[in-house]
Write a protein that binds this DNA or RNA. Structure first.
Length: 504
RNA sequence: GGGGGCGUAGCUCAGUGGUAGAGCAGCGGCCUUUUAAGCCGUAGGUCGAUGGUUCGAAUCCAUCCGCCCUCACCA
């Protein structure tokens, strides 16, 4: 690693030490003021002395005067280094350079052209950077390097920093929304001995002492509903789930899921909750209910339109009824999505996905799904073939999934057993009988919700790729000893095989 | 897995068979109001890797590695 460091920076490091200064001091000499505070009331504060700390940008050198910007978490401000104000620092000024982290004490003012500037009277090196910053004008643009070295991306690209601050604010608003409704936030196990609550291939890991296989959770659902049995009544969890599938602009193998469960509510209540979340995030984070995503504008003002699954199915399939098995199979063959391994309802759902989903620009709640494809949803009291379930679509992307939770233990046991009997290799291989036992003790009627936080953030921030809302998206491992291009090591190369597809 | 694109200096990129280039960053100078500062000078390379074709390969061919886009798969 260190062999690729810029030799001139190492030389400066040595120089600093030889002069008895510390290139990595343990303490910051003062409590830094956010630079944004200096700019916020510049006129009233002109002439006052402040201490700021952050990373130095490009240095513009005029011999006896130099300028640079100092960036901290709140923004950045120009620093003016004048020879006559810095008698002690001046001879060693070149040991402090772009990308170093410094503390600066100085007097607030402006330049002749009115640029707010902190005129330095004391400069303290806080951290010597041994690698240079990316080029000043184009910055760091290589996508692979940006993902692999997000730490560089973050300080080099302000909009990237802002993006992740926005993500954090979205999550904070969601928490506040549920907290105000009396929900409690809980944490359930990530390591599951039986993966369940969704249809997906799990990651397998091993517990050594117990000598048993464990699975990284594909959903927290079944544990959260156990809490309803326990009487917690309103719970939510925002946490990582893991699905052992491919990678794309909409899929990362680990992603963040919000799940909430509310006793004595049903899927209609949950629709209100979803609208409440969207409304709140739009108002408090985005500042608008109109968002731009992939070239289109979407109005997220509630209420969102509701469309029945079976009606949409007929509408986009020449009036074919979802439950008309022979005609649906025919249609599936015609579309080339007829997989005889699957159950009839799954084939029909594939037809739905092929014909209806592309048209779901939204926002739209697709409601009342066929019960057969909803193993955890309660059937409608009016039509036993229909489950009280909805999914929220915006921009053709599924953002949320919710239902009136099935709490009939006998029905649930039968459905889980049917799932295991299914040939589909994505379905669970084992029934979680403890979950059934929990239901036998009585779970209150409840409405449950799942929302993909990453996709929600994509939508809200107009981001095309899920990798741009994940700080560290999954990438292939580099070979040992291999470094990323940015420090002169041999580029690329590696072990491992090819990745593909999905998740979430 | 299929198709397409890309990989050259720390960064951003030119270079399509004949001595590896530019801008920025770096280094040495000049400069007290710049903000992509300017000017003069200087240094910097396993052209992703391996093999092949050729008198000669960054360039043509093959294989491999990595990233992006897209389709497929999949919430």
């Amino acid at each position: 690693m260190t062999k690729h460091i810029q030799p001139d920076r190492l030389a400066k490091l040595t120089s600093i030490r030889e002069k008895g200064a510390l290139p990595y001091p343990a303490r910051t000499p003062g409590d830094p003021v956010p630079t944004a505070k200096l700019l916020a009331s510049l006129e009233e504060q002109t002439g006052e002395t402040f201490f700021v700390a952050g990373r130095l940008g490009q240095i513009r050198d005029f011999g006896k005067l130099r300028f640079s910007h100092l960036t901290d978490r709140s923004g950045s401000i120009q620093i003016g280094f004048e020879r006559d104000r810095l008698p002690e620092f001046w001879p060693d000024r070149k040991l402090v350079e772009a990308n170093d982290i410094v503390g600066v004490k100085g007097e607030l003012g402006t330049t002749k052209k009115g640029e707010p500037t902190l005129w330095a009277t004391e400069v303290t090196l806080l951290t010597k950077a041994l690698r240079p910053a990316p080029e000043k004008w184009h910055g760091l643009t290589d996508v692979e390097t940006r993902y692999r070295m997000r730490y560089v991306d973050l300080f080099a690209n302000e909009d990237v920093r802002r993006q992740f601050i926005t993500r954090s604010r979205i999550i904070r608003e969601i928490r506040a929304f549920f907290d105000e409704l009396g929900y409690i936030e809980v944490e359930t196990p990530v390591l599951h001995s039986i993966p369940g609550g969704a249809t997906a291939r799990p990651f397998i890991t091993k517990h050594n002492a117990l000598d048993m296989d464990l699975y990284l959770r594909i959903a927290p659902e079944l544990y959260l509903k156990r809490l309803l049995v326990g009487g917690l009544e309103r719970v939510y969890e925002i946490g990582r789930v893991f699905r052992n599938e491919g990678i794309s602009t909409r899929h990362n193998p680990e992603f963040t899921m919000l799940e909430s469960y509310e006793a004595f509510a049903d899927y209609k209540t949950v629709m209100d909750r979803v609208e409440g979340i969207f409304s709140r995030v739009c108002a408090n984070v985005i500042g608008s209910h109109e968002i731009r995503f992939r070239g289109n504008t979407y109005d997220l003002t509630p209420p969102f339109p509701k469309k029945r699954y079976c009606e949409l199915f007929a509408e986009h399939n020449d009036g074919v009824d979802f439950f008309d098995e022979s005609r649906v199979r025919e249609r599936a063959k015609q579309l080339g999505v007829h997989n005889p391994e699957l159950t009839y309802e799954k084939i029909a759902n594939d037809v739905f996905e092929a014909t209806v989903e592309p048209h779901l620009d939204g926002p739209v709640f697709v409601i009342d799904y066929p019960k057969a494809i909803c193993p955890f949803a309660k059937a409608s009291d009016d039509d036993p073939r229909i489950a009280e379930r909805f999914e929220l679509f915006v921009a053709g992307m599924e953002l949320g999934n919710a239902f009136s939770e099935l709490n009939d233990p006998i029905d649930q046991e039968q459905r889980l057993e049917a799932q295991v009997a299914d040939k589909d290799d994505e379905t669970p291989s084992e029934v979680d009988y403890d979950y059934v036992t929990a239901l036998e003790y009585g779970m209150p009627p409840a409405g449950g919700l799942g929302i993909g936080i990453d996709r929600l953030t994509m939508l809200m921030t107009g981001t095309d790729s899920i990798r741009d809302v994940l700080l560290f998206p999954l990438l292939r491992k580099l070979q040992q000893g291999e470094e990323i291009a940015t420090d002169g090591a041999p580029d690329t190369d590696d072990a491992a095989s090819n990745g593909t597809d999905e998740a979430q």
